[in-house]
Design a protein around this nucleic acid. Structure first.
Lengths: 152, 152
DNA sequence: CTTGTTGCAAATTCTTTGCATGACA
DNA sequence: TGTCATGCAAAGAATTTGCAACAAG
């Protein structure tokens, strides 16, 4: 389906950032921007195929990896070990609260952890400290649904 | 139902906890206890073979997985997507600071993050909140070594 | 035109599973 | 002795890579 540029920040900059500007890359880069959460390569590949913009799986992987390498996306691993990518508009790294039910993800104020991580690293004498933080749970909606269905 | 175990170096309790007490399981369970850090199945498998206690790779995986399921080990994924296991003597979950160079890992005081994570989840209305935190960097020794070699 | 990209399929890597044999209780 | 565990090898999954055809600049 033809899709017009809605209110997405132009992916053009991001595409050119990682090399040549092609149709496939535009599509692949656009997806994580519009999906306001984490996407995994395989799902994205299927999704694009279904949507009528078939892009090779390798290309999806390559583009997403390049995007992450260029610092425009965060890459994490889900419980199953799969790679998940999320678009990152700014240069700063962020942490997200992800709903395990519907996949909804929202950025959270990570100031305190940043400081904590910093302190710990300094205290222990570690250099080049890095950290990853993942918060997950059932979002309000899903939580209600679960509660209604009778949960532990 | 034996609840008398403190933090004895006896893997027996842990082995019986996950089923029948066999020689292989004893060896596999002992490894993560003695290695005070994260171990990965493949490395452990090689290591055991070299050490003269050959255990099938499948058995290593099965045992480690069972150990994690029984709550006696933490399982995380490293950057490459491999599973890493770490023995956990107590019932509480912990967070570690891991050296990216030598693999040294040490538990850190995660009180602040726990609270922070809790607060965030509550604020956002998320239920059944869970979190994972991974801190990494170059430990003092490795840090020095890197610095000496002219660090990035 | 030149060179970077794509897509396919084959190759890798890590992990799991089926099943006959062997070990524990 | 009856199960449950082991080990091997084959099966699965996710990701990467080689390479010829192709499109962007």
């Amino acid at each position: 389906m033809e899709r017009e540029r809605q209110h997405a920040p132009t992916p053009l900059a991001d595409v050119t950032l990682i090399g040549r500007h092609t149709q496939q890359r535009t599509v692949v880069v656009e997806a994580p921007i519009q999906a306001e959460g984490f996407v995994d390569a395989q799902a994205l590949h299927n999704q694009l195929a279904t949507a009528g913009s078939p892009v090779g799986l390798s290309t999806v992987y390559r583009t997403l990896t390049a995007l992450a390498a260029a610092g425009r996306a965060d890459m994490i691993r889900d419980t199953g070990g799969e790679r998940l990518f999320r678009y990152r508009p700014g240069p700063e790294h962020r942490h997200y609260l992800i709903c395990t039910q519907c996949g909804l993800s929202r950025p959270v104020d990570s100031g305190p952890v940043e400081e904590w991580a910093d302190t710990i690293a300094r205290t222990c004498g570690f250099a080049n400290a890095r950290h990853t933080v993942e918060l997950s749970g059932a979002c309000p909606d899903c939580g209600r649904r679960l509660a209604a269905a009778g949960r532990p």
